[in-house]
């Protein structure tokens, strides 16, 4: 019972971990390469959500320094770091997709298993 209350209190961490595991599972088990890239993005989104939610302060405002002072702000550092993380994720996705386009042009399929089959057939 106690653990359920703890999870409900920190549900954003829980959701982030669920996303991470879904992404990781998709990435490692699906043979379709586009799905692998999608899994990669889901996994990274989970991590970003986790990282950003670390900086959240309950009842805090956006960290823009106001005149009056004495207000509660959220921690802006994780958000700033994750901007970098998102840029990295976008570039990796673009690169992976461009490789998949090249493979599709040669083999006519996006499925890693089928490509492996085509290759063994050629070797024989």
């Amino acid at each position: 019972m106690e653990i359920i209350i703890k999870i409900l209190d920190n549900y954003y961490y829980f959701v982030a971990m669920v996303l991470f595991v879904i992404g990781l599972h998709t990435m490692l088990t699906h043979s379709n390469m586009i799905k692998k890239v999608m899994g990669m993005n889901i996994m990274e989104t989970g991590i970003f959500l986790f990282f950003v939610s670390i900086g959240y302060v309950r009842g805090g405002r956006a960290p823009i320094i106001a005149e009056e002072g004495g207000l509660l702000y959220i921690n802006p550092l994780p958000s700033a770091l994750i901007l970098t993380g998102i840029v990295v994720a976008v570039s990796v996705t673009a690169y992976a997709l461009s490789l998949i386009v090249k493979l599709y042009a040669t083999y006519g399929t996006c499925d890693a298993d089928e490509i492996a089959m085509l290759r063994t057939r050629e070797d024989q």
Partner: peptide, 29 residues
Amino acid sequence: RKCIEASLKYLILSVMGSGCFLLAVAMLY
């Protein structure tokens, strides 16, 4: 195509590795 296949495999596994690393950084932070 051998190089492209190999680098895609490398990329997918490496990105998984980098994702794990970022999560570890989050845990420590």
